[in-house]
């Protein structure tokens, strides 16, 4: 599949981080740390991916009592396809641990 050259570098890194998680649900702050990007970059991307049908989201019951439910994310089939077609532009600059999975 042809690469979508309109995707920004952070979008590609976030997609790679989500792809790395497979079908496992992932959380916002974990994604920030694994992708090495700020929340101000992550959330607009997640919002856009969700609106375009590339991301599934669900509310999960809190692990500890007294905590609020958490929002969790994983790629849809279309999202996984998009992520594979758009790896990070420079995996050497990606977050630690991601470059291996993208090689």
């Amino acid at each position: 599949m042809a690469r979508n050259r309109t995707l920004s570098a952070p979008a590609r890194i976030v997609l790679a981080a989500l792809l790395d998680g497979g079908t496992r649900w992932q959380h916002g702050y974990d994604l920030c740390q694994r992708a090495g990007i700020k929340s101000g970059t992550l959330y607009p991307l997640l919002i856009r991916l969700g609106a375009q049908g590339y991301l599934d989201a669900e509310w999960q019951a809190p692990a500890e009592p007294g905590r609020p439910p958490r929002h969790a994310y994983r790629l849809t089939a279309a999202g996984r396809q998009l992520a594979r077609a758009n790896p990070p532009l420079d995996s050497a600059r990606g977050a630690p641990g991601l470059s291996e999975t993208l090689a």
């Binding site: 916002g28 958490r70 929002h71």
Partner: peptide, 16 residues
């Protein structure tokens, strides 16, 4: 239309 995302951010903050 994006208020759920605000709740999601608040929930994440509690885990940091």
């Amino acid at each position: 239309s994006l208020r759920d995302w605000g709740r999601a951010m608040a929930a994440e903050l509690g885990t940091i």
